[in-house]
């Protein structure tokens, strides 16, 4: 059984602030659907490219890692921006994400920083083992 709720208030409208008719009219949803399919195709292509890069020998490990992470980041940006609607969200959510990024960088940074601080020797009861 199907009901016509295309003009009812939906999730995007409820998240507030946007022009309802602009963003959640049937026409806008149809346009969004096309976008979702295109982004899906981009993500598939990105995966193929990632795997293809594995078989291409790049002499520099740093470049290999950078390319793999760059492709992954672009794919992630499409998922977050389009599928998760982050390209058009409320400020509150951007604020939450900004805090998350700050703490994530801190977490990663402190962990990696600790790498350069190894114990010089094992101590047992305060004396070298």
């Amino acid at each position: 059984m199907s009901h016509d709720h295309s003009h009812s208030h939906g999730p995007g409208e409820a998240c507030g602030g946007h022009d309802h008719d602009d963003h959640h009219s049937p026409e806008a949803i149809h346009r969004a659907v096309k976008k979702y399919k295109m982004v899906g195709a981009v993500l598939f292509a990105g995966t193929v490219l990632t795997v293809a890069m594995y078989y291409v020998h790049i002499p520099s490990v740093a470049i290999t890692i950078a390319v793999a992470l760059l492709i992954a980041s672009v794919k992630a940006a499409f998922v977050a921006g389009v599928f998760m609607h982050l390209s058009d969200e409320r400020k509150m959510i951007y604020g939450i994400l900004l805090c998350t990024v700050f703490f994530l960088i801190g977490l990663m940074g402190l962990t990696l920083w600790a790498m350069h601080d190894p114990p010089m020797q094992t101590l047992v009861g305060g004396k070298p083992a």
Partner: peptide, 26 residues
């Protein structure tokens, strides 16, 4: 790679399911 394709496809289908509701197509 196969599992990556599966998850990407599922991301498309779930956003389509939400869009279907917005269009009133249960």
């Amino acid at each position: 790679t196969f599992n990556t394709f599966v998850l990407i496809f599922s991301s498309v289908t779930i956003v389509m399911s939400w869009a279907s509701l917005k269009l009133g197509k249960l």
